[in-house]
Simulated assay, not measured.
Amino acid sequence: MSQEHDTTDNGPVRPPNEPVFNLPNVVLAMLLMMVAIQVALDSVLPRAAVLEIYLQTAFIPQRYALGISGQAGPYLWSPITYSLLHGGYTHLALNSFWLAAFGAVVARRIGWIRFLVFWLLSALASAALFLVFHWGDQTVMVGASGVVSALMGAAARFAFGDGGGFRRDRAHLNRRLSLTQSLANRTVLGFLVVWFVINMLAAVGFSFGIADSAIAWEAHVGGFLFGFLAFPPFDPLER
């Protein structure tokens, strides 16, 4: 998004603070897509069509115990398409908030093409770890939480800076930290500890009062580890 700055006879007027919702186009597009899908599932399509969409596009571990025969489409695309579906507006709102917060800083750093590739691969990584823990289950997993977790992991490598500070408008320009430097950074380490504690609480059944069903903590961990460990190849900025 571009901004216009006014001038006066005394020179340029100081530009206003950056809008809170000045999101990169790719992040805004993904948010709008997820909202449109949720509205269609909740308010537009008949129930039979909604159930069929979930069956064809949600991630269901049982598919992979049965093999690809007779289900080639969902077998191949559901490890990605599940990340665009949600279990309701509360689930969607929560993921959208964190996507806007962490997706924006990552998208500004790596650009929209890398961002979309990162989305696809982090969705796969999240689904893969979930599959390890739920092999053969009929559990249905939907939501962008795994991708959002991967974006959090990626942001942890650069967004907090060497000194642990964070400026929303300039965080994407920080030097990327090595793994050793990241773990030595107090802010990054604190962020990691809090993040993993929250997800371990989810693992033992604590829902934080926001979920109507179990939280897919395995997908969160898979996504976060992918983002934290595999971010360097996506990073176009030199050290």
Score class of each variant (00 low, 15 high):
residue 83 S to C: 12
residue 73 G to D: 10
residue 83 S to A: 15
residue 74 P to F: 06
residue 59 F to S: 08
residue 84 L to D: 04
residue 65 A to C: 08
residue 80 I to D: 10
residue 64 Y to W: 12
residue 64 Y to D: 12
residue 58 A to E: 08
residue 67 G to H: 07
residue 78 S to T: 13
residue 58 A to W: 09
residue 89 Y to P: 00
residue 74 P to D: 03
residue 65 A to L: 13
residue 81 T to K: 05
residue 79 P to I: 01
residue 85 L to D: 00
residue 86 H to M: 05
residue 71 Q to D: 12
residue 68 I to T: 10
residue 59 F to V: 05
residue 75 Y to N: 07
residue 85 L to N: 00
residue 68 I to S: 13
residue 65 A to Y: 10
residue 65 A to D: 13
residue 61 P to H: 05
residue 64 Y to H: 11
residue 60 I to D: 02
residue 69 S to H: 12
residue 66 L to R: 14
residue 88 G to T: 02
residue 89 Y to M: 10
residue 75 Y to E: 06
residue 69 S to F: 11
residue 74 P to H: 06
residue 61 P to I: 05
residue 69 S to T: 14
residue 72 A to Q: 14
residue 64 Y to E: 10
residue 60 I to M: 12
residue 83 S to D: 06
residue 89 Y to L: 06
residue 71 Q to T: 05
residue 91 H to Y: 04
residue 62 Q to P: 00
residue 74 P to S: 15
residue 59 F to H: 07
residue 68 I to V: 14
residue 65 A to W: 12
residue 75 Y to Q: 08
residue 81 T to V: 08
residue 80 I to L: 15
residue 84 L to V: 14
residue 72 A to S: 14
residue 80 I to Y: 11
residue 66 L to Q: 15
residue 84 L to E: 03
residue 63 R to C: 00
residue 58 A to R: 06
residue 58 A to L: 09
residue 86 H to Q: 06
residue 85 L to F: 13
residue 60 I to F: 02
residue 64 Y to M: 09
residue 80 I to F: 15
residue 90 T to E: 01
residue 75 Y to T: 03
residue 79 P to K: 00
residue 85 L to A: 02
residue 89 Y to K: 01
residue 58 A to N: 10
residue 63 R to H: 12
residue 76 L to H: 10
residue 82 Y to S: 08
residue 88 G to P: 07
residue 82 Y to W: 12
residue 68 I to N: 07
residue 78 S to D: 12
residue 68 I to F: 13
residue 81 T to D: 07
residue 64 Y to N: 09
residue 87 G to S: 13
residue 91 H to P: 01
residue 67 G to T: 02
residue 77 W to C: 08
residue 76 L to M: 14
residue 89 Y to G: 04
residue 82 Y to N: 06
residue 64 Y to T: 09
residue 88 G to Q: 02
residue 77 W to F: 15
residue 88 G to E: 02
residue 67 G to M: 05
residue 88 G to M: 02
residue 91 H to S: 08
residue 66 L to A: 14
residue 77 W to I: 15
residue 91 H to C: 00
residue 61 P to M: 03
residue 73 G to R: 02
residue 82 Y to R: 09
residue 70 G to R: 06
residue 78 S to K: 08
residue 88 G to N: 04
residue 88 G to K: 01
residue 83 S to I: 03
residue 67 G to I: 05
residue 85 L to G: 00
residue 67 G to F: 10
residue 87 G to A: 13
residue 91 H to G: 01
residue 63 R to Y: 15
residue 86 H to C: 14
residue 69 S to K: 14
residue 81 T to C: 08
residue 76 L to S: 12
residue 67 G to R: 06
residue 70 G to A: 10
residue 70 G to N: 13
residue 64 Y to A: 09
residue 66 L to K: 14
residue 80 I to R: 09
residue 61 P to D: 03
residue 90 T to V: 05
residue 72 A to W: 15
residue 74 P to I: 08
residue 90 T to S: 00
residue 85 L to Y: 04
residue 68 I to G: 09
residue 62 Q to C: 03
residue 68 I to P: 13
residue 75 Y to C: 07
residue 85 L to S: 00
residue 87 G to R: 02
residue 61 P to Q: 04
residue 60 I to C: 04
